[in-house]
Nucleic acid binder design. Structure first.
Length: 926
RNA sequence: GGGCGCAUAGCUCAGUGGUAGAGCGCCACCUUGACAUGGUGGAGGCCCGUGGUUCGAUACCACGUGCGCCCACCA
C-alpha cells in the first residue's frame, strides 16, 4: 500500500542507490545501440552545487534519461576541474585564517601537497550533491583534470602544439594580476566603469622653446587667437605611469603641434627628455590631442612604442609596487602604484605643471577572481596561436557539423572567434599542470613530455653544437650538484586542460574503445558565459587533435545547447555579496529533488533567463503529490499493470479516449525533448497528468470502476494502470524519483523505470471518435457546472436536467455517459423533452439545448440578463465574421480552409444565438 | 563603438499570420468514497508605440521608446 503522501527524503537516497547498483548509469552494450554521449561541464573540484549547476545538470539528466529509455547506449561522463586560481586562492585563504605559514613560506612542494589534501577532503562534495539532484552520470568513469591520464593528455597536447609552432614563448604586454602575481588571459579581465580622474600635465619643451598654440577659432575653423606656449599639454588617467613615458605622440594632421614635432620635451620628475612624434593613434579632438606613450604599461601605447622603436620602461614589480630602477626617482621606489600616483600628482603640482584635474568615468580592468585592478606588464609568457586553431573551429560551425541551440549563439561564437587574440596560457601559480619545458644553462628551452626526453634533446643539441661529451654531461646532468636542466616554474591556464575534456576523459591519447564509441559527443549542455572560455577552446583542440579514419578533423559535439542563467525572483544575478543566493540543496531538502528539477525544466525556455521563485517549486511539489494520489486511487481500485494488455484493444469510449490522449502526449514530449524545448516537454506531461488524467479520466472512470460490469471494470482497471505507467515513463526524465517509486510500487515486475522503454507515438492508439465523444461529455459537464455557479445553485444540491430535442448522436452520447454527467454535475435526474420547461435555465451546448427546470429558485431577471449577454456576444462574433466574409479580397485570397472555417464558425454562432433567443422568449411571460 | 536579447493577465513567463494561454496571486463556493500539497466556478489583457508587408499582424519587417546582457585599447 502506498503511504498517504510521498516522502522524498526517505525515497531519494534509496532509489538512487538502486539505480547505481543496477548499472543503469553505464552505457549499455546492447548490439546496435546508437551511442549517446554528454560530457559534463566539470565543476570545480572543491566547489559545491549552486543553482546554475542544478539547472545545467537537470537538463543533461533529462536528456540522458530520455535517450537511455529510447534504447541508446548512453554515456554521461562526469568529472571535476582543478580550477587553478580559484582553488589555490581558497587554500591560501585557509592558511591565512588558520594563521599557518603562507604559501611562499611553505614552498611549492608542501603547498601543492596541501592543496591535494584539501581536494581529498572536499572533492567529493559536488558529486554527492549531484547525486542528490538525481544526476545519472557514469560514476565509474569519474575523471579529474589533474589525474594521471588527463595530465598525460595535457603534456602531449602542449608538446605537439609547440612542435607545430602553435605554442610559443614571447615577451609582450600581458594582463597582470598583482594580487595573485600571475598573468591572466583577456577573458579573465572584467572591464568596469568607475569614477576616475583625468589629470592634465605640462611637459616643458627642451631648451625653453616656444610655439604659438591656437586657442580660438572662427566658423570655418581658422584660428583667430593664439597663445605662446613653452610646453606640450598631455592628459592621463594614470599619472603614476608618466615615469615610464618614452615619447609624446600627436596626430600627423594636427597643425597645432606641427611646429614642435620632432623636438623633445622634458619628462618632469624623471628629468629625461623624450621625443614628440606623430602617429595615427592620437585623436586630435580628444583631450589636448597629445598622448603620452608609456609602452610598458598600456596596451595601446605598447603598439605605438613598438612601431616607433621607443624605449619601454618597466615601472612595477609583481605586486605593482614601483621598481627599484635607475630611471625612477628614489623617492617613489617601493611605493604602491596608488601611493606613487598621489606623490607624483603632488610633485607635478608643486612644480607648477598641473594644469587641471577633471572627474571622468573610466573603464578599468579588474581580475575576475582577485577583484584588483589589472596592470599591463611586460613579461615572458607562453601563448597559443589561437587564430590558427580558430579557423577550423569556425568552419565546423559554418558547415553545420556543430550547431548551437538556440541558433543565435552562433553569431556570438563567430564574433569572438573571428577576432581572437593569442591565448596566454602560462600562469605564475603552483596549483595546476606544470609546463613541460626545461631550460639549459645557456637558457635554451627544451619542450618535452618528460624530463628524460628533455634531457635527450638537450644532449643531442649540445653535442651537435660541438661540446665534448664531458661538457654536455655537466650541462645537462650537473654531476653531483643536481640537474642543471631547470623546469619552467609556471603552470597552465585551467582552461587548457578543460579544452581537452571531450576526448581526454574518454581515454585519449590512448585509443580506447570508449573514445572510438563516444567521440564525437552528441550534445554539450552549458551556459553562455563560458562559450569563449570553454566551448570555443574545446572546438579548437578537438578539431586539431581528433581525426576520423580518413584523417578529417572531427568536432567534439554535434549540438551545443546553451541554456539560461538562473536569476533570483527579481531578475538579479545571484551572488554571495548580494545575499540573494538560493541554495538548491535547501530546496531539495524542503520540496524534493523532483520539484526543483521540474521547476527548472519547466522554465528552461530557449533564450530567456530563469527567475527562480520558491512558490513555483512548491507548485511542482504539489504536482508530485497530485500524481501520487492518483496512483493511490489506482491502487485502491485494483488497477494493476497487465503486460499482455493491448491499449489499442479497448472498447469503452472513455478508455479509448485516455489512450488517445496519452499517445498524443508521448508525441509532444518526445518532439519537444528532441528539439531541446524542455519547457514544452515539461508542460505537456504536466498538463496531461493533471488536467487530463487526474481531473477527468479518474473522475470519469469512477462509475465504471465502482458500478460497471466485470468486463468493463477489468478493461478500465487495465487502461488506468497502463495510462499511469505511461505518465511515469514520460515524467521520468524530469521527476525521476517519484516516478521510479510509483513504478516500483504499482506492480510486481522486473526492472526499474530508468531502464524501461520510452513510449513512442503509435498511430493505432489514436481515436478521433472517442476524443470527440468524451470532449462532448466533458464540455457538457463543465457547462452545467458553470451555470450552476452562475445561478447560485448550492454546491451540494442535486438538480434535474432536461435534454431538449437532442439529435441521434447526442442522445447516444448522453445515454452512454449520463451516469457520469449526473455524478460530476450533481444532477438528480435526466429527462428528455421536445421543449424546455417554462422558467428553466437553458444551456446551449454544442448546438443542443439543456435545461435546468428550477422555476421559483432562480432569479428570472438575472437569467434574462445572462441570456441577453450571450445573445449579444454571439451577435458580436457574427458581425466580426461577416465583416471578414464581406471583404472580397479575403474570400478571394485567403486559403479555402480558412474561409470555410469562418463560415462554419458563423453558423455555430448563429445557431447558438437562435437557441439563446428562444430561451429568452420562453422566459418572456415570467 | 560593435553584437545579442527582452517588452503579452496583478506577478513570473509560454505562445501563434485567422478564436490569447499557464503557474502563482485574487474572488466565490465546496471536509463529494485518490488528493485541502485538494476540488468547482469566476474576475482580470488597446499582446510597448508608430509605420510598413498582408485579404488579415500580438506574431513578419523598419523605426522609435524603455530595460537587460556580451564584446571593445579613446589616452
Amino acid at each position: 500500500m502506498l503511504e498517504k503522501s510521498y516522502d522524498p527524503a526517505s525515497a531519494e537516497a534509496r532509489l538512487y542507490d538502486a539505480w547505481e547498483k543496477s548499472g543503469a548509469f553505464q552505457p549499455s552494450d546492447a548490439p546496435g545501440a546508437e551511442p549517446y554521449t554528454i560530457v559534463i561541464p566539470p565543476p570545480n573540484v572543491t566547489g559545491s552545487l549552486h543553482m546554475g549547476h542544478a539547472l545545467n545538470n537537470t537538463l543533461q539528466d533529462a536528456l540522458v534519461r530520455f535517450e537511455r529509455m529510447r534504447g541508446k547506449s548512453v554515456l554521461w561522463q562526469p568529472g571535476t576541474d582543478h580550477a587553478g586560481i580559484a582553488t589555490q586562492m581558497v587554500v591560501e585563504r585557509q592558511l591565512q585564517e588558520r594563521q599557518q605559514p603562507s604559501r611562499r613560506e611553505m614552498g611549492r612542494e608542501k603547498f601543492v601537497e596541501r592543496v591535494w589534501e584539501w581536494k581529498a577532503e572536499s572533492g567529493g562534495t559536488i558529486f554527492r550533491q549531484l547525486r542528490r539532484l538525481g544526476a545519472s552520470c557514469d560514476w565509474s568513469r569519474e575523471r579529474f583534470t589533474m589525474d594521471e591520464g588527463l595530465s598525460a593528455a595535457v603534456r602531449k597536447v602542449f608538446v605537439q602544439l609547440h612542435r607545430e609552432g602553435l605554442i610559443y614563448r614571447d615577451k609582450r604586454l600581458v594582463n597582470w594580476d598583482p594580487k595573485f602575481e600571475t598573468a591572466i588571459s583577456d577573458l579573465e579581465v572584467e572591464n568596469t566603469e568607475v569614477d576616475g580622474h583625468f589629470w592634465h600635465f605640462k611637459y616643458p619643451l627642451e631648451n625653453g622653446e616656444t610655439y604659438e598654440f591656437p586657442i580660438a577659432f572662427d566658423e570655418e575653423g581658422n584660428a583667430t587667437e593664439w597663445e605662446t606656449r613653452d610646453y606640450i599639454s598631455i592628459a592621463t588617467t594614470r599619472p603614476e605611469t608618466m615615469l615610464g613615458d618614452g615619447a609624446v605622440a600627436v596626430h600627423p594632421s594636427d597643425k597645432r603641434y606641427a611646429p614642435i614635432v620632432g623636438k623633445r620635451c622634458l619628462l618632469p620628475l624623471a628629468d629625461r627628455y623624450i621625443p614628440i612624434i606623430t602617429d595615427d593613434y592620437p585623436d586630435p579632438d580628444f583631450g589636448s590631442g597629445a598622448v603620452k606613450i608609456t609602452g610598458a604599461h598600456d596596451f595601446n601605447d605598447y603598439k605605438v612604442a613598438k612601431k616607433h622603436d621607443i624605449k619601454l620602461y618597466e615601472l612595477m614589480d609583481t605586486k605593482a609596487r614601483m621598481l627599484d630602477a635607475d630611471y625612477i626617482p628614489e623617492k617613489y621606489r617601493g611605493l604602491d602604484r596608488y601611493e606613487a600616483r598621489k606623490e607624483i600628482v603632488a610633485d607635478i603640482d608643486a612644480r607648477g605643471l598641473l594644469i587641471k584635474v577633471e572627474d571622468k568615468k573610466i573603464m578599468q580592468p579588474f581580475g575576475d577572481r582577485s577583484g584588483v585592478v589589472i596592470e599591463p606588464m611586460l613579461t615572458d609568457q607562453w601563448y597559443v596561436d589561437a587564430e590558427t586553431l580558430a579557423r577550423r573551429a569556425i568552419s565546423a560551425v559554418e558547415d553545420g557539423e556543430t550547431r548551437f541551440v538556440p541558433e543565435n549563439w552562433t553569431k556570438t561564437y563567430f564574433q569572438w572567434m573571428r577576432n581572437i587574440e593569442p591565448w596566454c596560457v602560462s600562469r605564475q601559480l603552483w596549483w595546476g599542470h606544470q609546463i613541460p619545458a626545461w631550460y639549459g644553462p645557456d637558457g635554451h628551452c627544451f619542450v618535452a613530455e618528460t624530463e628524460e626526453e628533455a634531457r635527450k634533446d638537450a644532449i643531442a643539441r649540445y653535442t651537435a653544437e660541438g661540446y665534448t661529451l664531458e661538457e654536455v654531461d655537466k650541462m645537462v646532468r650537473g654531476e653531483g650538484e643536481g640537474p642543471l636542466l631547470t623546469r619552467d616554474e609556471d603552470v597552465l591556464d585551467t582552461w587548457f586542460s578543460s579544452a581537452l575534456w571531450p576526448f581526454s576523459t574518454l581515454g585519449w591519447p590512448e585509443k580506447t574503445p570508449t573514445l572510438k564509441k563516444h567521440y564525437p559527443t552528441t550534445t554539450l549542455v552549458t551556459a553562455f558565459d563560458i562559450i569563449f572560455f570553454w566551448v570555443a577552446r574545446m572546438m579548437m583542440m578537438g578539431l586539431h587533435f581528433m581525426k576520423d579514419e580518413k584523417g578529417h578533423p572531427v568536432a567534439p559535439f554535434r549540438d551545443v545547447y546553451i541554456h539560461a542563467l538562473v536569476l533570483d525572483e527579481k531578475g538579479q544575478k545571484m551572488s554571495k555579496s548580494k545575499g540573494n543566493v538560493i541554495d538548491p540543496l535547501l530546496l531539495i531538502d524542503k520540496y524534493g529533488a523532483d520539484a526543483l528539477r521540474f521547476t527548472l525544466a519547466a522554465q528552461a525556455a530557449q533564450g530567456r533567463n530563469i527567475r527562480l521563485s520558491e512558490a513555483r517549486v512548491e507548485g511542482y511539489r504539489n504536482f508530485g503529490t497530485k500524481l501520487w494520489n492518483a496512483a493511490r486511487f489506482c491502487e485502491m481500485n485494483e488497477c494493476v499493470v497487465d503486460p499482455s494488455f493491448d491499449p489499442a484493444s479497448t472498447k469503452e469510449a472513455l478508455n479509448k479516449w485516455i489512450v488517445h490522449e496519452a499517445n498524443g502526449c508521448a508525441r509532444e514530449v518526445t518532439e519537444a525533448l528532441e528539439a531541446y524545448r524542455f519547457n514544452d516537454a515539461a508542460g505537456a506531461i504536466y498538463k496531461f497528468t493533471w488536467n487530463v488524467f487526474c481531473d477527468w479520466y479518474v473522475e470519469l472512470s469512477k462509475p465504471l470502476l465502482f458500478d460497471g460490469g466485470e468486463a468493463v471494470k477489468s478493461e478500465t482497471r487495465k487502461t488506468a494502470a497502463w495510462a499511469l505507467d505511461h505518465i511515469l515513463k514520460l515524467l521520468h526524465p524530469f521527476m525521476p524519483f517519484i516516478s521510479e517509486e510509483l513504478w516500483g510500487s504499482l506492480a510486481r515486475r522486473d526492472g526499474m523505470l530508468i531502464k524501461a522503454q520510452w513510449p513512442a507515438f503509435d498511430a493505432r492508439l489514436s481515436s478521433d471518435e472517442a476524443a470527440a465523444e468524451m470532449n462532448w461529455t466533458i464540455n457538457l459537464i463543465s457547462a452545467i457546472r458553470s451555470i450552476r455557479t452562475e445561478i447560485n445553485a448550492p454546491a451540494g444540491a442535486k438538480v434535474p436536467l432536461v435534454a431538449v430535442a437532442l439529435g441521434e448522436q447526442e442522445k447516444a452520447r448522453l445515454a452512454a455517459h449520463g451516469d457520469i454527467v449526473s455524478r460530476l454535475a450533481r444532477l438528480s435526474v435526466i429527462d428528455h423533452a421536445r421543449e424546455a420547461p417554462k422558467g428553466a435555465v437553458q444551456i446551449v451546448h454544442d448546438g443542443a439545448v439543456f435545461a435546468l427546470p428550477l422555476e421559483g429558485v432562480i432569479d428570472i431577471g438575472a437569467e434574462k440578463a445572462r441570456l441577453e449577454k450571450e445573445i449579444a456576444k454571439a451577435a458580436d462574433e457574427i458581425a466580426r465574421i461577416d465583416k471578414k466574409l464581406a471583404n472580397e479580397s479575403f474570400v478571394a485570397k485567403a486559403p479555402a480552409e480558412v474561409v470555410e472555417e469562418q463560415r462554419a464558425r458563423r453558423e455555430d454562432y448563429a445557431a447558438q444565438g437562435e437557441k439563446f433567443k428562444a430561451a429568452l422568449a420562453r422566459l418572456k411571460d415570467l
